[in-house]
């Protein structure tokens, strides 16, 4: 009950305080909770469980693992969900330690947008571009089925796992052979095969010019002027089929192609997308 009340209080607080005007200097606040469900996706019990898990993992690794849900990022004066997440992170002075290490998952429910943002040197080391997408790919599977609790639990679990690996000096990043995506065998085949195919096509084109004699298959030159009469032209709609395909989240906002972590001018790494 207490948690629910806290969530409602946060929602009210966010709505009242996170206006464009509220981002003036000196109005920064602190956030007591790691899980703030202003959109009302979780039960009190679920929120408590997630809060406990996030708090334990955050304090263990010195890196905050945050969740915020809202109805629409536009209500807070932001143009996109990514800016909204960064705005919240700064406004509430999120993060632990001097570097304010932390990772925030923000869900904006109206358009099913999400942003996953990391801040601070320790967080950037643990949540590489590749790792960040690994985390989002995993929780999106739950959110697509409206399994909010499952998705958040998965996020906290993965974030903790990634922090553990980074602490061990082995952060989750692009596997070496995925940097180019091609084995040496494939490369060799490409180096030999593609030029050979192009050369073959060009040479066959030249050869065709040497052998132009062929039997005529059409009589286009002998059409009588105005001699084409279309008497029946019927196009009858029969039926319709609709298929829905889940598409992978675009990764352009955060890079992700070559390993490491891309940090923007605001000091954030991560990406955004839809679920």
């Amino acid at each position: 009950m207490k948690a629910k009340l806290c969530a409602l209080a946060l929602a009210l607080l966010l709505l009242l305080s996170l206006s464009v005007a509220a981002f003036a200097e000196g109005e920064n606040e602190t956030l007591e909770y790691y899980v703030s469900d202003a959109a009302g996706l979780l039960t009190a019990q679920q929120q408590q469980t997630l809060e406990a898990a996030a708090r334990a993992a955050s304090e263990k690794h010195g890196c905050g693992i945050y969740i915020i849900t809202i109805n629409d990022f536009r209500e807070f004066g932001f143009g996109n969900v990514s800016d909204c997440a960064e705005g919240f992170y700064n406004h509430y002075q999120m993060g632990l330690g001097n570097e304010r290490n932390g990772i925030l998952l923000l869900l904006s429910m109206n358009d099913r947008d999400y942003a996953l943002k990391a801040y601070g040197g320790g967080a950037h080391e643990a949540f590489t571009d590749y790792g960040s997408y690994r985390i989002s790919d995993s929780f999106i599977r739950y959110f697509r089925n409206n399994d909010w609790y499952g998705g958040f639990a998965d996020y906290i679990s993965n974030a903790e796992d990634f922090l553990t690996r980074a602490a061990a000096g082995n952060p989750v990043d692009v596997p070496q052979n995925e940097n180019t995506g091609l084995s040496s065998g494939v490369k060799t085949a490409m180096i030999v095969g593609i030029p050979a195919l192009i050369a073959f096509g060009s040479c066959e084109g030249m050869k065709r010019k040497m052998k132009p004699v062929k039997q005529a298959g059409f009589a286009d030159d002998y059409l009588l002027q105005g001699g084409i009469h279309l008497d029946v032209k019927k196009d009858v709609f029969v039926n319709r089929s609709v298929t829905r395909t889940v598409i992978r989240t675009e990764r352009s906002s955060g890079g992700g192609g070559g390993g490491g972590t891309t940090i923007n001018s605001g000091g954030f790494s991560g990406h955004s997308g839809k679920f």
Binding site: R112, Y222, L224, G227, D231, D235, F237, V238, R244, I247
Partner: peptide, 28 residues
């Protein structure tokens, strides 16, 4: 069309018929 994280593909099927005459002159 894309809706959220889904691509909705709509396929309409049609039965089409064309009939007519084509006149040729002096096909050699």
């Amino acid at each position: 069309i894309r809706q959220g994280d889904e691509m909705i593909t709509t396929t309409d099927f049609f039965d089409v018929r064309r009939a007519g005459t084509v006149h040729f002159t002096r096909i050699p």
